[in-house]
């Protein structure tokens, strides 16, 4: 199961204003979704530098600038594109838009850190709450 990916419907297009990003909680993680006008792109919401919320960054073309220390990343490839960020990168996710809904393709092993499919939804949510509280 570890390497399988799944398409997940995450957010309505109208929830993300033009040239802005929003973080969307998917399972235990936050995905930053950006509205570039002609398409939506998705990346991990955490800046690899100091964990800044990339969804709050200024969008420049198809790049985003982290609001904390201005590390800049390509939303298409995830590559760091300015001097500060050049040797790091962020995870990107494939996106598709259908019927006004943005879907992203997420590796299941990450969406479900504790693997097996058997847990109940409620149990899973409790676990997430615990995870969220830990530093």
């Amino acid at each position: 199961m570890k390497d399988t990916k799944r398409w997940i419907r995450v957010v309505r297009c109208e929830d993300i204003p033009l040239r802005e990003g929003r973080s969307v909680k998917v399972g235990h993680r936050e995905i930053a979704i950006f509205n570039l006008g002609d398409r939506f792109l998705a990346v991990d919401n955490r800046c690899p530098h100091k964990g800044g919320p990339l969804a709050d960054g200024i969008v420049c073309g198809s790049t985003v600038v982290c609001p904390l220390h201005a590390w800049k990343f390509s939303l298409e490839t995830g590559a760091g594109v300015n001097a500060a960020s050049s040797s790091s990168s962020i995870e990107t996710f494939a996106t598709s838009v259908d019927d006004g809904i943005v879907s992203v393709e997420i590796p299941v092993s990450q969406a479900e850190p504790h693997g097996p499919q058997l847990q109940s939804s409620a149990h899973f949510c409790d676990m997430l709450a615990v995870l969220a509280d830990s530093p």
Binding site: I8, R9, V26
Partner: peptide
């Protein structure tokens, strides 16, 4: 200015 200006959006589809 925008309905989701201050909102923490949750995924429409639950992962599980």
């Amino acid at each position: 200015r925008h309905p989701s200006q201050f909102v923490q959006i949750k995924s429409l589809e639950d992962v599980l």
